[in-house]
Design a protein around this nucleic acid. Structure first.
Length: 406
RNA sequence: GGGCAGGUUCCCGAGUGGCCAAAGGGGACAGACUGUAAAUCUGCUGCAAUUGCUUCGAUGGUUCGAAUCCAUCUCUGCCCA
């Protein structure tokens, strides 16, 4: 199976400008393509991970990837698919984020020997002259057409600032620049980027009379239609400091039945035959598939070793076995009063709840366990000598913390 | 610049002088059932505690008492220029 066919089979492709030409190009390693990443946070997340995997897949097939960091576009903020305005980031934040992105990307993509490139659009966007740009580029854009673009739809009701409106032009300009500077003939991006990407191909056609291509990646949605890779507390990050390998593993371990196969297909590098075999799995057998998914992804993002650790501690915690690798919270004697710590304080210290009130609630509702023993008395004290050996605190069904006195 | 409508607790959205920590829904959390799934049912959802404290864009004012009234400011949307 050639690369293009594989991408289709994995359900990764959403839209393409010209299927025949693109297939021909990527299958023969003739594409120089770019994907843009705006530095909106200090770590990459799952959405970026998908894009990076795609770059890797195409790179392995002989195509040349350009990772474009949006140091310039980040100053504007992409309104695509957003219902509200982005908060403007300071220049310092952006620079910091750019540095973080770079570091993480180097883990996934091989940039050695000119096999891939890493560029920052701040290098050309920040020096643009306004009037010049308007004349050179602005004249090729129809406001009427831009306004009808899907990505602005939701914003027509809630409001769209001129700043954000210009995002499409900046992104188009990027493609135009990369096309000229590096012979970049294709752009990849999330499906919500489609209209911005078309802006680029259009600009290249009008300015240079040449064809460039665009291709979008299917957005990873769960069966309820929400973007995956988000939890109540925010995104699932690739940075182990922000989302620990254990939490990362658990996120995928817990996906809904309806979404497992899709995730395995789209995110892992397992051979298609293996995945097709899982397609017939049903019921509790799918649980096995979830373990595979979680393991594979943790391995890709962190390391095989981390994946094993996460898997082991998960199994141990959920079956009540060894707690050696459990997420641990260390207390010191200053956290204790009268030779122990009360259950509410323990929950708060372990950051399992955000307030004492919440701690009180979970305890009263019978959602707390200490070393497997249910605790429903809010005045319960965990004794110092027990803490020395470490105790396992459990809140609800899936939240575990080992508490140790050091 | 002018006119209009708005800014309510995580989100949507009621509330237009005390009965308001604020209806209802969603989400989140906890319990039951399960497969660390989904669906369903129940509880719960400001903070700290048994009696308080701080909230309804911001500041100031009226009042015994304000999310509710007044003033100023600020932000958002719509219409006119």
């Amino acid at each position: 199976m050639k690369i293009y066919e594989e991408l289709v089979a994995r359900g990764l492709l959403a839209q393409v400008t010209n299927e025949e030409e693109i297939r021909e190009m990527v299958n023969n390693g003739k594409a120089t393509f770019y994907i843009g990443f705006d530095p909106t946070a200090d770590s990459l997340h799952v959405g970026h991970f998908m894009a990076l995997c795609l770059m890797k897949r195409l790179q392995m097939a002989g195509n040349k990837p350009i990772a474009l960091i949006g140091g310039g576009t980040g100053m504007i903020g992409d309104p695509s698919g957003r219902s509200d305005m982005r908060t403007m980031m300071t220049t310092q934040t952006i620079e910091h984020n750019v540095a973080c992105f770079k570091k993480q990307m180097e883990k996934f993509i091989d940039f050695s020997d000119d096999k891939a490139m890493l560029v920052n659009n701040a290098d050309w966007l920040l020096d643009l002259n306004y009037v010049e740009l308007l004349r050179e580029v602005g004249s090729h854009f129809s406001v009427n057409r831009m306004l009808s673009a899907e990505c602005y739809k939701q914003r027509m009701e809630k409001g769209l600032s001129f700043l954000e409106f210009n995002y499409m032009i900046m992104q188009s300009y990027d493609f135009y620049m990369l096309f000229q500077k590096y012979g970049c003939n294709m752009q990849f991006g999330g499906d919500d980027q489609w209209s911005n990407m078309l802006g680029g191909t259009e600009l290249i056609r009008r300015k240079l009379g040449k064809d460039a291509h665009a291709m979008t990646i299917t957005l990873l949605l769960n069966s309820e239609g929400n973007k995956m890779g988000k939890t109540q507390s925010g995104a699932v990050w690739l940075d182990p400091e922000k989302t620990t390998p254990y939490e990362f593993y658990q996120y995928w371990r817990n996906v809904a039945d309806a979404d497992v196969l899709k995730c395995i297909r789209m995110l892992t590098f397992l051979p298609m035959e293996e995945i097709d075999a899982m397609d017939s799995w049903e019921g509790s057998q799918l649980n096995k598939a979830k373990e595979i998914l979680a393991f594979e992804l943790t391995k890709l993002v962190h390391s095989e070793e981390e994946a094993k650790k996460a898997e082991e501690s998960s199994k141990a915690l959920f079956t009540g076995g060894d707690t050696a690798n459990a997420p641990t919270v260390e207390l010191t004697s200053s956290d204790l009063t009268d030779g122990g710590i009360d259950i509410l304080s323990a929950l708060v210290k372990a950051e399992m709840v955000s307030s004492r009130s919440e701690a009180r609630r979970t305890v009263e509702q019978g959602g707390t366990t200490v070393d497997g023993e249910k605790v429903d008395d809010i005045n319960y004290i965990i004794k110092e000598d027990k803490l020395k050996d470490g105790i396992l605190l459990k809140k609800g069904k899936k939240s575990f913390k080992k508490i140790v006195l050091v």
